[in-house]
């Protein structure tokens, strides 16, 4: 690693101010950033650790939504939303491994927007609102492509408000080495319609499968998806699967998610 200092602000305001310094970079749980620092892929002068900011940790529910502090680790989410939003809890409980879940945070995951990460699918399918240090951003406007989001420099995700669907499920088909999603599909049924978000598959990161949403909004059953398929154009091809295979998996996993959601 290149050399840098670490600061540990205790409030969002102090963190924002620290991030205003030259070459400052936010450090969430570090489960993605630290390995990339080891490879010398980043050279911050200061890392601003968000781990000591209590105001961005924790889970609360009200009015059909669950709000998760941006600094809440996956393991806590898996435990604390199990009753209010089981599909989200299950997703959180399957990210990485237990040690990664002790440190990695929902805010860090969304800000990184890895094209194979799980949380972006949950946020997009839930129509979540990403609350930052200075505004609220709808999930539909948040994800802008591979590792790219609507966040501005120095902007911190303080919380994510997930609308709680009537029914939901997330099915992840794991890439055998990294155990990230080779394809992951999150299906969420709300009173006003169904949302389907797909991660791991597209060259542009997480996306909504709108044809499936339309079909499922009329008939929330796996059968409603018969004949629907995502085209392979724009999907990723890598060591672990071709675009065509990913396109196929999207269809399979979406049906399974619908069935599991019940």
């Amino acid at each position: 690693m290149y050399s840098f200092e670490i600061v540990r602000p205790k409030s969002v305001a102090d963190a924002v101010s620290a991030l205003g310094e030259e070459e400052a970079q936010a450090l969430g749980g570090g489960q993605t950033l630290i390995p990339s620092l080891k490879q010398r892929l980043a050279a911050p002068a200061v890392l601003v650790s968000l781990a000591s900011i209590d105001e961005i940790k924790g889970v609360s529910s009200s009015g059909g939504a669950v709000t998760i502090g941006g600094g809440t680790p996956h393991g806590t989410v898996a435990r604390d939303v199990a009753a209010s939003y089981p599909a989200l809890a299950a997703l959180a409980g399957n990210i990485g491994d237990p040690a990664v879940r002790s440190r990695g945070t929902v805010g860090g995951s969304l800000a990184n927007n890895d094209p194979a990460a799980c949380y972006p699918a949950a946020a997009l399918a839930s129509g979540a609102t990403i609350v930052t240090s200075n505004r609220e951003i709808a999930a539909d406007d948040f994800f802008e492509g591979l590792f790219t989001t609507a966040l501005e420099d120095g902007e911190i995700i303080t919380a994510v408000k997930f609308r709680i669907p009537e029914k939901a499920a997330y099915i992840k088909f794991e890439q055998p080495a990294s155990r990230f999603a080779l394809v992951g599909v999150f299906v969420a049924k709300f009173a006003d319609g169904v949302r389907v978000a797909v991660t791991g598959a597209s060259e542009d990161g997480v996306f909504r499968w709108t044809e499936a949403e339309a079909a499922l909004s009329g008939d929330f059953s796996a059968a409603a998806l018969d004949g629907l398929a995502v085209g392979a154009d724009g999907l990723m091809t890598d060591l672990h699967g071709s675009a065509a295979y990913r396109a196929h998996l999207i269809g399979v996993l979406t049906k399974r998610a619908v069935t599991q959601a019940g």
Binding site: P176, A177, S178, R179, L239, H240
Partner: peptide, 13 residues
């Protein structure tokens, strides 16, 4: 080498 770390070289778990 494309499979150059545990991110792409699948070790049995």
């Amino acid at each position: 080498l494309l499979s150059a770390s545990y991110m792409d070289y699948a070790m049995p778990r």
